[in-house]
């Protein structure tokens, strides 16, 4: 293992042009995000998807070029991608919130359970609702 002191040589250094191009692309994408947010595409899901794809695009640009992951070893690539894949595992939690409404639970005053029902009090009689009052004491 020769002790190579001039290691800059064997570590390929990107040209200034690549960095400037990436920076330009990032700025354009930022402007695109802002522009896309102003336009009303009928349903908001379309807006959300556009915003997220642009953000993911910018993220991949920063990771691949600025963080030089495209040029680094497979291991670094594995950890770079692995972190974000694991973040997606969080969204298993959404199955719980999505399927909660499939189990109908009758409320205190007979209506379906809402997310923040009024608190029934010891003095409240089940079934008939006292005049509407703000929740909490």
């Amino acid at each position: 293992m020769s002790h190579s002191n001039d290691h800059a040589a064997n570590h390929h250094v990107d040209s200034v042009g690549t960095y400037i191009a990436t920076f330009g692309a990032l700025t354009i994408l930022m402007i695109a995000t802002i522009a896309a947010a102003q336009v009303n595409f009928g349903h908001s899901i379309v807006n959300n998807i556009i915003a997220m794809t642009i953000a993911i695009l910018k993220a991949t640009l920063v990771i691949a070029i600025f963080m030089a992951v495209r040029r680094s070893s497979g291991l670094v690539k594995l950890y770079a991608i692995g972190g974000f894949v694991w973040f997606l595992l969080f969204f298993i939690m959404f199955c719980d919130y999505a399927t909660r409404s499939w189990e109908p639970v009758k409320g205190w005053y007979g209506e379906e359970s809402k997310v923040v029902p009024d608190y029934p009090h010891v003095t409240d009689h089940p079934g008939e609702r006292p005049e509407k009052h703000d929740s909490g004491h």
């Binding site: 290691h7 070893s73 291991l75 950890y79 972190g83 973040f87």
Partner: peptide, 26 residues
């Protein structure tokens, strides 16, 4: 042993730290 091993080790350590940060903000 040599600089390549050291640099690679630092990169892996840094990326392990960044993975932890991803989950922190996640």
């Amino acid at each position: 042993e040599d600089l390549d091993q050291q640099n690679e080790a630092y990169l892996v350590g840094m990326w392990a730290f960044l993975v932890q940060e991803v989950m922190f903000f996640g």
